[in-house]
Design a binder for these strands. Structure first.
Length: 572
RNA sequence: CGGGACGUAGCGCAGCCUGGUCAGCGCGCCUGCCUUGGGAGCAGGAGGUCGGCGGUUCAAAUCCGCCCGUCCCGACCA
């Protein structure tokens, strides 16, 4: 392609609206433009990258035996009512009405539609297993779209849904998808980490997330420095800690201490001259099953996902100030478990304490020498806190690190959730009608584009991996008015095209500096500069974007040199 | 939805506090000359309802109110 004929509106300066690296560079490199918050146009260069990702995803999904379909973006409300999600999904679901006032939504995901399709068309175990996928636009009316393509409201997703005759089959499919995802992200040139994940509202029994490691990642994950253990921070298990040797003798009774205006853990610790780990915070939560108290050691953070899962509720929120007063008899900051008439859920670390400090449920007072079970009853002890880098790996005991990641893929074992709700059954070999075992597998295709930039860039611009680059080679003639230079560039361009290389020829009448800057910005892996100086020696200059290394190559060896480099980066 | 910031030419910004020679700068764009190995130079030129509506005032980009939009920090997710 000729540079002058492509719409590549590069920007010299950073757009004010963009903060994240990938967002800035996608805009500056002329790959995307914003239409509305979280909604973007893909320009020619951006679309080429997107197509590269799609191509890899398609190849690997097909290789794994999945079949491509294309489902509608607009879905009737009835299906969502049937699955129960019409009323559960919330504001994130973009709801619409047609001219007859019939209700629809713009699909944020397609479990309902696919299950409906399969229940109509599949009736025998002989037709199973089945794995169907599509690559399509999704819309989720996100609370806060951000970072350009990383969290858009409209985005491109590959979603796959599998149907198996039994749990063992479903697990085999899950394993296949696990391996397939590994291949996909490896081919995309991404450095990623596979972690255990909470299943969230999609439901199901277990799942893994594929995380691209990057500072701008919105997710935190715990990763073992020794073994393969990795988990989303909201899922990562905290091992029960050993009893704390510090506190006062277990024998003495709780004692009220006057602590005027002393509310936070730090304030209490300073005032009573104890360490935060000798204090227990009592958090009052509202749930759809009524209010509960959660006990967490002062130096720990509550993990609301774990609380939700333990209580088997879909929503929890911290009780407001007036509600706390109503339930505990004291202002926020003085809650404690002693005398509290609520179900009390304690983290392991709290139960392991000998005696601790807590609120007294009386304004300006705290209790010291509080003992679990002796002074109050714990409804249940569980893992309710978020792990820290101080925690040991739950598998091997080695050190954990906390990393940031961008979730680019997520695989779920769904089980029977949707097949039961939508009655997707088949007849097994014994003529019994049974529910299909389902799994679902998502990849954020447009998000991969952004994630690749987060991992591949420098001060000058994007550094694409060969597999995702919009063009593999850029050809830059120093001057298009110097005939020999232009002829040599054009001839190389034709040769490369004929050899099947994706090449961009900069035919613009610009000064060399302008072209170099633009090529650094758009990040093609290989750049060939044709100029009078090197031409006189029968050579051309090849610059590798990532390493910035420059090679002077004989003109007659140039084509092979480029082809070899492309091949080795794609397949080496 | 809570907290913070912003909205002036395609992009980046100044001007606003202290209302009146404030419609300005840089980049980009168009024409011509010149130049060609890391975003050149000269000359000429096009382009703006100062986010919108309303109010105060002799007078509003500037002060006030409401609304819209955008971004950043927290609860959702590929």
């Amino acid at each position: 392609m000729l540079f002058s004929r492509l719409l590549i509106p590069t920007l010299k300066e950073n757009p004010a609206e963009a903060e994240a690296v990938s967002h800035r560079l996608l805009l500056r490199a002329g790959m995307i433009r914003k239409l509305a918050s979280g909604i973007y146009n893909y320009l020619p260069l951006g679309l080429r990258v997107l197509r590269k990702v799609e191509g890899i995803v398609r190849e690997e999904m097909n290789r794994a035996g999945a079949q491509e379909v294309l489902l509608p973006a607009v879905q009737p409300a009835e299906l969502w009512e049937e699955s129960g999600r019409w009323h559960v999904y919330g504001k994130e679901l973009l709801r619409l009405k047609d001219r007859h006032s019939r209700e629809f939504c713009f699909g944020p995901t397609h479990e309902e539609v696919i299950t409906d399709l399969v229940r109509r068309e599949v009736h025998s175990y002989r037709q199973l297993p089945l794995n169907l996928y599509q690559i399509q636009v999704k819309f989720r009316d996100e609370i806060r779209p951000r970072f350009g393509l990383i969290r858009g409201r409209e985005f491109i997703m590959k979603d796959a849904y599998s149907f198996d005759v039994d749990e063992a089959g479903a697990e085999a499919t899950y394993e296949t998808m696990y391996q397939t995802y590994h291949r996909i992200f490896s081919r995309c040139g991404l450095e990623f980490k596979i972690v255990e994940a909470d299943t969230g509202p999609i439901g199901g029994s277990f799942s893994h997330e594929f995380m691209v490691l990057a500072d701008t990642g919105e997710d935190l994950l715990a990763s073992c420095t020794a073994c393969a253990y990795g988990a989303n921070l909201e899922k990562a298990e905290a091992l029960p800690s050993r009893p704390n040797p510090m506190p006062a003798p277990v024998g003495s009774a709780p004692e009220e201490v006057h602590t005027p205006e002393v509310r936070t853990i730090d304030e209490v610790a300073a005032f009573l001259k104890v360490s935060p780990q000798d204090i227990v915070k009592t958090l009052i939560y509202e749930t759809d099953r009524g209010p509960v108290a959660v006990l967490i050691r002062g130096d720990h953070e509550v993990n609301e996902v774990k609380v939700k899962n333990l209580l088997r509720v879909t929503d929890i929120s911290l009780a407001g100030p007036s509600r706390v007063e109503e339930l505990t008899g004291a202002e926020v900051g003085f809650s404690g478990p002693v005398g509290l008439k609520l179900p009390i859920y304690a983290d392991h670390a709290v139960a392991a304490l000998g005696a601790f400090v807590s609120g007294a449920n009386r304004k300006d007072f705290h209790l010291v020498n509080v003992n679990p079970q002796r002074d109050f009853t714990i409804t249940q002890v569980a893992d309710l806190r978020t792990v820290t880098s101080q925690d040991p790996c739950p598998r091997c005991g080695a050190k954990l690190t906390i990393l940031r990641g961008i979730e680019v893929g997520h695989i779920f074992k769904l089980g029977l959730k949707y097949s039961e709700a939508l009655k997707a059954t088949f007849l097994d070999a014994d003529g019994q009608e049974v529910f299909m075992f389902m799994g679902c597998y998502g990849i954020g295709v447009s998000r991969i584009v952004a994630a690749a930039i987060e991992q591949g860039h420098d001060e000058e611009g994007i550094i694409w991996p060969m597999a995702l680059a919009p063009f593999q080679v850029g050809v830059v003639p120093i001057s298009i008015s110097d005939e020999a230079t232009w002829e040599a560039a054009l001839s190389l361009y034709e040769d490369l095209k004929n050899a099947g290389v994706e090449v961009l020829l900069d035919d613009r009448d610009e000064r060399p500096g302008v072209k170099f800057k633009d090529f650094d910005l758009i990040g093609l892996p290989l750049r060939v500069v044709i100029g009078p100086k090197t031409l006189a020696q029968g050579k051309a200059e090849v610059r590798h974007r990532r390493s910035r290394q420059i090679a002077l190559v004989d003109l007659d060896k140039l084509l092979d040199y480029l082809k070899d480099n492309i091949y080795s980066e794609l397949h080496g």
